[in-house]
Amino acid sequence: MSVRIDIAGLRPERVAVVPSPLAELGMALHALSEPGHHPGLQGWVTGVTARMDPQLADRMCEADFLWRTTFSDLFMPCAGIPGRTTLPGATLAEELDQLDKLTDEQFVDAALEFTCAMPYGTGPSPLVDAGLRRRALELAASRGPQQVRFSERLLSDPPRIRAWLRQFLADCDEAFFADTWARLRHQLAADARLKTDLLRHKGLAEMLTAVSPVVTLDEGAGQITVDKLSVGRTATEDGGLILVPTSLGWPHLSVLYRPGWQPVVHYPVATPELTSPASVEQLTLRMTALSHPVRMRICRHLARSAYTTSELAQVHGMTAPEISRHLSVLKKAGLITTRRRGRYVLHQLDVTVVARLGSDFLEGVLR
Rank of each mutant, 00 (worst) to 15 (best):
T85M: 13
L87F: 02
E62D: 10
G89F: 06
R68W: 01
Q42D: 03
G89C: 06
L87H: 02
G40Y: 11
D58F: 04
D64F: 09
V48C: 07
M60N: 10
D58A: 15
V45L: 04
S72Q: 07
A50F: 04
F75W: 11
G40Q: 08
R51Q: 14
P88V: 08
F65C: 03
W44M: 15
W44G: 01
F65T: 09
P77V: 02
S72E: 01
G83H: 04
V45E: 06
Q42W: 02
L66M: 09
A50M: 07
L41K: 08
T49L: 06
T69M: 04
E62L: 15
P77D: 11
D53A: 14
A57C: 01
A90R: 15
C61S: 14
G80K: 03
A63I: 13
L56P: 02
L56W: 08
P88A: 08
A63R: 14
W44K: 09
P82E: 14
M60C: 04
W44V: 13
G83F: 09
P54H: 11
G89R: 05
F65I: 13
F65D: 11
T46F: 02
Q55E: 14
W67G: 02
D53K: 12
F71R: 11
R84Y: 04
W67H: 15
L87I: 04
V48E: 09
F65L: 13
C78A: 14
C61D: 08
R84K: 13
A50H: 10
D58I: 07
G47S: 02
R59A: 05
G83V: 12
M76S: 10
T69L: 06
G47A: 02
D58Y: 03
D53R: 15
R84N: 13
A57K: 12
F65Y: 08
T46W: 02
M60K: 11
C78I: 00
L41N: 04
T69W: 05
F71G: 00
R51N: 08
V45H: 06
T49A: 14
A90L: 10
T69R: 14
D64S: 11
P77R: 11
D73G: 15
P88G: 04
D53G: 01
M52H: 09
Q42M: 09
D58Q: 12
M52D: 08
A50G: 01
P54N: 06
G80S: 14
A50L: 12
S72P: 08
M76I: 10
G80D: 12
R68K: 13
A90P: 00
P88L: 07
A50Q: 13
W44A: 12
A50I: 00
F71V: 03
T46K: 12
P77W: 09
A50N: 02
L66N: 05
C78K: 00
